[in-house]
């Protein structure tokens, strides 16, 4: 028989570690393009390898003067306030590049994406985006 305190601790722990794959430090697109092997360190200590093809795709979608402002990985925020299945992109430069990539003509910041768009985006930018959960 489990202890009730243990159960509460387990739930709290589950809630705490849900974002363990968040980046420890984010790097700019220009900095990652300069690296021989583009790598990002995550909060759980793992090294996340970023695909060069995705970086090249992002660079082709964005003007060169904005390469320093685009921080990688792009954070896709799952926020219960926006409803089930919706993700939010708060960064203006990231919103611009995602809108261009998905062919969204009119958008506002923060950019709200729905499930089909999220699937399409994750297929194109698997290693340069990350999904984080916000407490609701």
């Amino acid at each position: 028989m489990y202890s009730e305190d243990y159960l509460e601790k387990m739930l709290a722990e589950e809630y705490r570690v849900i974002n363990r794959h968040a980046p420890y430090v984010r790097k700019s697109l220009r900095a990652l393009l300069r690296e021989r092997v583009p790598i990002i360190i995550l909060r759980d200590g793992t090294r996340h390898m970023v695909r060069r093809e995705e970086l090249r795709l992002l660079a082709s979608m964005l003007e060169e003067d904005k390469w320093d402002s685009l921080m990688i990985p792009i954070i896709l925020e799952v926020n219960p306030r926006y409803g089930e299945g919706a993700v939010v992109v708060r960064d203006p430069v990231a919103s611009l590049v995602i809108a261009r990539l998905l062919g969204i003509k009119e958008y506002s910041v923060p950019l709200i994406l729905f499930r089909p768009q999220l699937i399409e985006l994750r297929e194109k930018l698997r290693t340069t985006t990350t999904v984080l959960f916000m407490p609701g």
Binding site: V37, R47, M49, R51, T127
Partner: peptide, 17 residues
């Protein structure tokens, strides 16, 4: 090839550059 890891929502998988 340079072997590393890729983290998909907390799931670690192999990645090779």
């Amino acid at each position: 090839g340079i072997a590393g890891t890729e983290n998909i929502m907390g799931v670690k998988t192999y990645a090779v550059e």
